[in-house]
């Protein structure tokens, strides 16, 4: 058991009494009570658990919390600056009513926002390639693609 410090959504968090092999996903969900990041497959196959590590999309289900000690994590709860000021990705997701069940969408949005950060005006092909690791069981791919284009137009690369 260990004590681990991480920076989540701009706040330093100390996690006491944690098995250092605990995946970041479960550290967030069970230790910090932040349940926006979702468990889908546990093997990095579905992308439901995607968060940002120093701005890059990673799979939190396959990343031990000890490996990211002291580093900067952004989760879906921290994607917006505040509740009134959503990220263009979140706005676009609502505008196009992307979600069906919505379970995968936190991971989709985290991956999409990471894409726009490096590619502010992605083509359909760019989007397909970048988003291929995120499964949507409900099949909302058409709307995800549209929403990413809309977010790109609205300054989603911020």
């Amino acid at each position: 058991m260990a004590t681990i410090q991480i920076r989540v959504n701009g706040t330093n968090r100390q996690i006491d009494d944690i098995d250092p092999t605990t995946p970041l996903l479960w550290a967030l969900r069970d230790h910090l009570g932040m349940v926006g990041t979702k468990f889908g497959c546990g093997k990095g196959l579905c992308g439901a658990c995607t968060v940002h590590l120093n701005g890059t999309a990673i799979r939190s289900c396959s990343t031990p919390v000890s490996a990211i000690e002291g580093q900067m994590i952004t989760t879906i709860e921290g994607l917006a600056k505040d509740t009134e000021n959503l990220h263009p990705i979140q706005e676009a997701w609502m505008e196009h009513d992307v979600p069906q069940c919505g379970y995968c969408q936190a991971g989709q949005m985290m991956n999409a926002s990471a894409l726009l950060a490096v590619n502010p005006k992605p083509s359909d092909q760019d989007i397909d390639n970048a988003m291929a690791g995120n499964i949507c069981r409900c099949g909302t791919y058409k709307r995800i693609r549209k929403a990413i284009h809309t977010a790109a137009e609205n300054g989603g690369a911020r």
């Binding site: 932040m34 959503l86 609502m94 979600p99 379970y103």
Partner: peptide, 21 residues
């Protein structure tokens, strides 16, 4: 008409069974 839970969904608020605390 967009889903009534959309704002909660896109901001990662607890909604699903697995989010129960």
């Amino acid at each position: 008409i967009g889903g009534v839970d959309n704002h909660a969904l896109v901001t990662g608020q607890p909604l699903f069974g697995i989010d129960t605390q």
